[in-house]
């Protein structure tokens, strides 16, 4: 890492939104993340990838964390980026939690009906982001951290 990159990392911008844990808000969450990151001038591909990953994580919170959704409970989306173009998104819920994270991340694994759920949520997140961290405690909730460094070498 060069000195310049180190310097850039110090300058962080961040935001945090909390919204009702219902499926209608999946679109709100991914569009909010995209709007917040627009100042980094991401490519269309990068933006699509980030929106997809956020959509997967929020869908998981609604479907699995809150058993299909709950107006009384909420999902928190926080996002930060540095001037080096590294983006970190955190999707947190206070729902059911995941008993076996390794199993949940496996492609095609789903606790839902195979007709409706593809079991590919985490696989999609992993393939579109640089890093995907999952922390969860049963009965307490789940926090998914998505990290991606944008290619901003042409910018600024």
């Amino acid at each position: 890492m060069t000195e310049r990159q180190k310097e850039a990392q110090k300058k962080m911008n961040q935001m945090k939104v909390e919204f009702a844990a219902i499926s209608e808000n999946e679109a709100f969450a991914r569009l909010t993340a995209a709007a917040f990151l627009s100042r980094l001038d991401p490519t269309v591909d990068e933006l699509t990838e980030i929106k997809t990953a956020v959509s997967e994580a929020v869908s998981n919170a609604v479907i699995h964390g809150y058993g299909g959704g709950s107006l009384e409970q909420s999902v928190v989306l926080s996002c930060e980026y540095d001037e080096g173009g590294t983006v970190k998104l955190i999707i947190e819920d206070g729902g059911a939690g995941i008993s076996d994270i390794e199993q949940a991340r496996r492609p095609l694994f789903t606790t839902g009906s195979p007709e409706e759920r593809s079991g590919m949520g985490f696989t999609v997140m992993e393939s579109f982001m640089d890093r995907v961290l999952v922390e969860s405690e049963e009965g307490k909730g789940t926090r998914v951290t998505l990290i991606k460094t944008l290619d901003i070498s042409y910018g600024a």
Binding site: R30, T52, S55, S59, P114, E115, E116, S118, M120, G121
Partner: peptide, 16 residues
């Protein structure tokens, strides 16, 4: 304009 993994479920279900 946008699809996430739910699209997979839509396709698989219709295939069946």
């Amino acid at each position: 304009s946008f699809v996430d993994s739910s699209g997979i479920g839509v396709v698989m279900g219709r295939y069946n």
